[in-house]
Every structure is written in C-alpha cells, then in structure tokens.
Design a protein around this nucleic acid. Structure first.
Lengths: 238, 238
DNA sequence: CGCGCGCTTGACTAACTTCAAAGATGGTGG
DNA sequence: CCACCATCTTTGAAGTTAGTCAAGCGCGCG
C-alpha cells in the first residue's frame, strides 16, 4: 500500500548517470520562467524495469515528469483483469489527480528516469505564475482530449483498428522514417488496447503477412504501408 | 460544417423561460469571485431535443455550461459507427479543447439550456484570476480522471459490468433514494457503453428479472439492489 | 384511430477469448 | 563463451460473448 520508491538518489549522486533536475526542468515545454522555480523542488529518480513508483490508493503527494525510458499507468479489477491507462514516455507529465490519492499505479516498463516534484511546491508555482498555470491547464486539456480519443477507439473500434491506431500513434512519437520502438511487451499492448496477448500477436503476424509492417525484433516495428495502416485505423479499409 | 445554433436568445428575451446568466454563473462551484466577471460574457441559450450546438471540426470559439436538460458529446467513424463520449448534465462545463477545433459534436438529448462564454473572455478570466485558474485546472483534472475510469470500463469490463457501472454513476448524479432519470434513449446508452441497442435492452430486462432494478418507464430506473449492482459493476459478482 | 419511432425478443453469426502447447529470446551464472 | 532457464511470443483448436438480422410490441403523437 505504501509507495515503493526504488533507487532514491540525490541530484548530486546521480549527476553522472542522468541529467540533473535543473537540466531536465529547463526542458519543460514552453516554460522557461517556470523551470527555475520548479528546479528547487525537483528530484531525479531512477527506476529499474518493473519497479513501482506508486500504487493505486497511495497518497498523491507528487507530480512527475518522464526524463527517459518508459512507464505505464495501470488499473486492476478485483479478479486480476488489468488495464494500461497510458504509456508514459519522455516529456510526459503525470500525477495530476483531483483527489488525495492516486487512482492508478505507475510502473517502469523499462529502466526509467523521472523527475519528481512535491505537489505542494508544484501548486505553489501554479498559483504564483499565471503563465505556468495556463500552460499546464492546456496540457491537461490535451490529455483529456487524448483520453476521449481513446474512448472512441475502445468503444467502437475492432481489434485490427485498435492495433493500427496504436502503431500509428507510437510512430508519431518516434523519429520519422525509422523503426518504431516498442519498449513495452505484448501483454502491455494487449492491456492497453483491451485485448489479449494472443490477439495482439496474431494481428501483428497478419499485418506483417499483408505487408503493412515488418517486425525486425520483438521491440520494434517498421511501418511499411503507413497509408494502409491509417485507413485501417480509421475503419475505412475495404 | 458550420455551427448550428438553434434558438439564439438574448438574456432578456429568455428571462421568463430560464434563469438569467447572472443567476447561473453565480452557481459556478466555488467560484464566487469568478461569477461576476464571467457574467458579462455569458449568453443563455436554449436547444430543442436533437439540436446540434456545434459539430466536430467547428472552430472552438466558446466554452459552455449546462444549466438544465441533458446533452451528449459525440464522435463518428467514417462508416457511421457512433460513440457518445459523455452525457453533459446540469453543472457540467464543456468545450475546453486544446486545439482550434472541437474534436466532437454536442447535441441536445432533451430540451436543454446552456450558458455560452466566449473562449477569449473565459481565458482572460483564467489569466487574471489565479483562483479561477486553479479551480478550472482541478475541474479538468477531474474530467481526465473520469475519462480514465471510463477507459477501464470500456477496455476490460463485460457488457453487464458496463451497464451496472453506468446505472450506478447515473444514480450518484440524481437524488438519493429516488428513481434515476435517464434522459437519453437506449441507443444513446449503447453508444456510450460501446454496445448495441439490443444488448442494452436485453441486459436491462435481465437486471429486472433478477430483481436488481425496476423499469417504471423507458426513461427511469429504480435501483432495487444497489449493492448487487455495485458488485456487478466491480466485476466481483459470483 | 393509425402511424412512426423506440423498445424488446428470438435465432443465428462472428469476433475475440480461452485453453493448450510449442517455439523464440534474452539474461545469468558456470 | 556457452548452456540453461525463465519469460515472452506465436500458433492452433474450441468456446463464449456480444453483434447482426429479423420480427413483433407498445407508447405517444398527429
């Protein structure tokens, strides 16, 4: 029930392994003036693959930013059914919650580095800095919009369309023209799309056989027919 | 493609039919100081059942608050599949979007009254009033949290569990102990839960046969066994 | 009164899951 | 460096849930 914080490091101790908080905070999108103030409260932390940052029900005392690696936010049902709410990739913020407790757990998909900010300090910045306030407001609106887009996917799209949507969304976060990195495993993808591992695996095979993708290894995908995938993802396939 | 605005009324012309904007704005939860400033930009508008406030792709020039009635935000796929993102009930704000265009349409489920605020004016208030800014930030965080909760429902719950979740959520918005009003029809519920009309109808019948609910008429439900429904909704049923 | 729309019910179908097992992969220690 | 083992992935066959197609019912409105 308590927050499991692996590898607690001071900024100084970490300097040679990961960028210091100051450097990372400076990268806060469009928030040059916010960076300095957040710096003082940011702590860089490393988490090994599979480690838990916090669990559903933990007191929500912090907000985080992903510096490197990948994480997943996860919810569980009583009988063990699992749902991956979101994959958290470099640049993503998380931990903005309306209640005193986190409504989901966050785990490291691969080794990951995050910056942790005390929620109180973060909210202080919001109160004193209208521009920061506005920026984060917009960021949360964008998150909301993305969640609603995903609701459409989960509610009305077939397994094929879901996977195609996922691959395209992942491609948009990576470098154009290159193989898409999938830090998560098949099970994570399945739980993100509301499918089973078997279905995800079968669909990837089918996409490959149709020439839509290549699968150089288990953690990368080359999109060979981006347009075909897009059509599939929109439910416009023949 | 253009915004369809039915029944455009001035505040004065409407005064006898619906509360004036001033009265409504005053009800903004925890925002006494914001009310006065928003008043000046708020316009009360009525929409008849089925009318469209705006469509997917329209320029997002306004934010809205529901004063009375019910609306639905809707997305469509190319082949006509429909998904209801959210039912908008009295007190709900909507229209906070990160882009220049609305990503969904909003239609009146039954006759509805909303207050419309120019987005620019609204954002002005946010910039000048840190407390309002904070309040709306929290509101959007809450929305996001609700959307993520719904993602779990859509991704991992069975049809039965989805419908039970829906009935309980609707009950929480109504008056305790009373019949739950369902302003929307079966098709809307189906599109909200990612099911078909037939499945929703069959499940309601099944719930009634099991003594979980009563169906006094097509637009109300009495929850007879709240605990049984809750167990169902959590996937903890025998 | 009769028409239309929304709701219900039934029989059949399809998509996805479940169960089962074999095949790859990758990390670790000898 | 290689062998081993756990874990992840793929594939096949059978099963289940919810969808599709079709028809009848009932309420409300003109």
């Amino acid at each position: 029930m308590t927050t499991l914080l692996a590898h607690r490091h001071s900024q100084a101790a970490l300097a040679h392994k990961a960028p210091p908080a100051a450097v990372i905070a400076r990268s806060l999108a469009g928030m040059a003036t916010v960076g300095a103030e957040l710096d003082r409260s940011g702590t860089v932390m490393n988490f090994a693959r599979g480690k838990t940052l916090f669990e559903e029900g933990d007191r929500a005392g912090y907000v985080f930013k992903v510096a490197s690696g990948a994480l997943r936010s996860v919810r569980l049902l009583a009988d063990g059914r699992r749902y991956v709410i979101k994959f958290l990739l470099p640049g993503d913020f998380f931990g903005f919650v309306p209640n005193a407790e986190y409504p989901y757990s966050v785990e490291a998909v691969g080794d990951a580095t995050v910056v942790r900010y005390a929620r109180q300090a973060f909210e202080g910045v919001l109160d004193r800095n209208p521009q920061a306030s506005r920026t984060f407001f917009n960021a949360v609106c964008k998150e909301l919009s993305a969640a609603q887009e995903r609701l459409l996917v989960m509610g009305r799209k077939t397994a094929e369309e879901r996977l195609a949507s996922f691959l395209i969304a992942m491609a948009e976060r990576g470098k154009p023209g290159q193989a898409v990195e999938l830090p998560m495993n098949r099970g994570d993808i399945a739980d993100y799309l509301g499918l089973t591992v078997e279905t995800v695996s079968r669909l990837l095979t089918r996409f490959r056989q149709r020439g839509l993708i290549d699968l150089p290894d288990n953690h990368s995908v080359m999109l060979r027919d981006h347009e075909g995938l897009t059509d599939l993802s929109l439910g416009e396939a023949a």
